[in-house]
Every structure is written in structure tokens, then in C-alpha cells.
Design a protein around this nucleic acid. Sequence first.
DNA 1: CGGCCCTTTGACGGACGTCAAATAGCGTGG
DNA 2: CCACGCTATTTGACGTCCGTCAAAGGGCCG
Lengths: 218, 218
Amino acid sequence: MISPNEPFYGFENLFSAGERIVAPRRTILRQQEVCDLIPLICSGWAACSLMLPDRRRRLILSFLLPGDIASTTIALEPVPHFSIEAVTSVHIRTVRHEDLKATLMRDTEFLERFLHYSAEQKIQADMLAIDLGYRSAEGRIARLILRLATRLKQRGLSDGVSFDFPLRQHHIGDATGLSNVHVSKVLVEFRHAGYVEINERSLRIKNQTELVEIANFG
Amino acid sequence: MISPNEPFYGFENLFSAGERIVAPRRTILRQQEVCDLIPLICSGWAACSLMLPDRRRRLILSFLLPGDIASTTIALEPVPHFSIEAVTSVHIRTVRHEDLKATLMRDTEFLERFLHYSAEQKIQADMLAIDLGYRSAEGRIARLILRLATRLKQRGLSDGVSFDFPLRQHHIGDATGLSNVHVSKVLVEFRHAGYVEINERSLRIKNQTELVEIANFG
DNA sequence: CGGCCCTTTGACGGACGTCAAATAGCGTGG
DNA sequence: CCACGCTATTTGACGTCCGTCAAAGGGCCG
């Protein structure tokens, strides 16, 4: 039901155009600005987001974890329709846009992985639309937590139960289309019901069964 | 602001595995069932949709118009995460999954068009998430109408003002995440305000300026 | 100690879903 | 040609989820 989102294996073999550390809250890549360097997350969390037309809120399309690259839509067109911002301190490696494009055209095995990753991202985007269109606040937040747990486990960054959780409530709100106030209320409810424990920037799932139930039918 | 969605030029040069006519309301391709024939719409309208987990409603991800292929996610993995259903009588041509894949690996110009089309679809999916997460009912419906007008005009099927409009209100509801009842109320309001005229399965935009205003800031 | 950001809590309102009933259209069969 | 049934649309009443506003408390750092 909750389809995971694997890291993009193979990207690390490309010629690296550089590495750097980005501080929390700093922008890595800005919507509508030409970028010829495509970032790969080596460590830390980042958020890939769209400004809403009213310029006052934003929608976080996905959280980027170690092993992720930005949305695959910038492979051909070097003007992203999204921004990327560091959540924690983030270590990134960059690859030249031209190098990526050339490798795609030349290396069919690499291309195959890229198309697979790209398809997975499209599916996740569709799932986000379902979440925002039809699910309750509880369902959206439960799914976000479970999806992060799965992805971190895949990357060996969690046992699937507890993990570092650097998100602020406004991140959760931006990723689920909810107001900060409502996010707070739902989290209080989850803690009170004994589903999760959140403190010191870490999260522990205490009742996975119930959380999955809420995620699927909330 | 409303980024259009071009047809997938180039697909028609592939080796055709067959053609057929599908009657309205018939399923062309079913979610989670192996399909080795990828459809291209030659004439008519179809809807690409996901069943919601409660199995009672569905989300229409996009309407497929002449020149469109199904979501590009089935290029590698022949098990679609979506269904396609004919809205009108639809004329389709099919291409073998294996042929498409082989052509992508061999023909770099074709690959480039495919990646471009694929990126455009990802962007549209993100826009759908914004619509469902943040826009009002009026905004969503206005955008749907304007986007269809633009796409039909690109294909030479409309002057951008009036066009055949085979959608039922439940299609509009499924595509905007609204109940049929609420769709009806908004359409009555639009007609009453003189923004559009809908009858005899056709639609005419009477006040584009106002509709664009609602689409952007609703 | 003081300022800033984050979180919590309560009050209130609005947009939209659900339920229900009336009407209209449209094809089918007698 | 009419009766019938099914589907689509319209309209009203009512409820609820969640947004906005406001205020208070907590943690962190200068």
C-alpha cells in the first residue's frame, strides 16, 4: 500500500563536479532559476517544494534523503519547477547537467535505472495528490511518518521503528497541506493515544499496527 | 501559469501492434494488470485514473486527448498503477511494450522527446497535488476547463473558446476531488455568472478573463 | 534577562461532504 | 406511442473537518 521510494543507485558513478555542505534552511536550488549542477544528497535531509501561487505557502513534494537526487524533470531542461532547501545540514555532491544528459544517452543500463527512478517519482506524485485530495489529516500524517520510516530503513538509517526526525511541524504541514495549528493537534493526539513518541529531534513508532490502519483508511 | 500538456509527437512512428475502437465507459487498461500493449489515443477522450483505497471513489489523474499516450511510467514496468477508461468512443493504436523500450534505448532523439513528455507529466502531477491541496472548488474547476481549452487548441480541436465537452459532472468531480453535488453547484454558479455556457455536450468560454482570475487566485 | 521561534490550546467560521428528494433525459421493451 | 427504469442534474438542509485568529508557555541563544 505504501510504495517506497528507493535511492537512485548509480548516480554516484557519474563524474562529480563538486561537493559541499549546506546549512539548515539554506536553499540548494531555486525554482525557475537555471541550474547546470544537479545535486545528489549524500547526508542529511532536504525538502523539494513548490511555492504556491499566492506566494505565502508552499507544498513540499518530497523529502530528499541520502541517495536521492532532485526530481528527474531537470534531466533535460535545466530550469527546475521546484526549489530544494536543506532541512538539516546537508552534504551534497553535484553533477553537471550536460554530463547527466550525455550519460543517459550513452549508457543504457544507467538510463534504465533513471527511467525506473523517474517512474517511481511520478507514482509518488500521484499518491501525494490522493493524500491531499481525499485523506484526513490523521491519514496524511500517519502516511508521512510510515513512508519516512520505510525509506530510512531501506537506506540503513533506521531499524524501521525509531529514527532521527529533524522535521519541524511547519515542514509536516507543508508536506501534508495542513496548517501548523492542525498538525500540532494531530501530533498531540497521536502521542496521547500512544502511537508515536517524538522528542529530541527523534521519532519512535510505538503502535505500528494502528498507524497503518489510520494511514490506509483515514 | 497554466502549463499545457503537449501530445507525444513521435510515438506514431513506432511499429503499430494494432488498432481498435473502444466504446464509452469501457476500460482500456486496468490498474495492476500486466499490459504489454501501450495505447495511443487517436481520437476521442479517455480518463487515466486511480482507484482510491476505499474502492468507492477514484481520482482522475488526467484526461487523455488525441495524441496522448498513457502515463510514461509503463515504459519499463508493464504493470500500470492506474486505469484508463474511455469517456467517449475512442480510437486507439497500440504499441508493444518491448518495442517501445527497445526504441528508447536505440533512438536518442525519440528518447529525448520521451523524457520531455515524461517530465511534463510529472509537473502536471505536482500541479494536481497543489490543486487538490490548496485551491477552492471554483479554482479547480476553472483550471480544469482552461487547461482542456488550451490542450484542445494545441491539437487543432478547438479555437480555444468553444469545444466538444463530453464530460459528465462525475468526471469533473473525480478530476477535482469534489463531490458531484458540489460540482453541480459550482457549474450553476459559473453559468449564472456568465463565465461559461455548457449544453449539448459542448462548452463555450464566455468570460475568459474572469475564469483566469478564478483559476489563479481561487 | 530578553527576544525569537516553536508548540500548544481554545474559540470561531467557512468550505465542502453527505443525505434526501424532486426533476429531467434517454433508451428499451411492450 | 407509451410505460418504465436508469442515470444525470439540481436544490436544500445539515454536519464536520480543518483553517484562521489569538494568546500563552517553553526552549535556546545572545
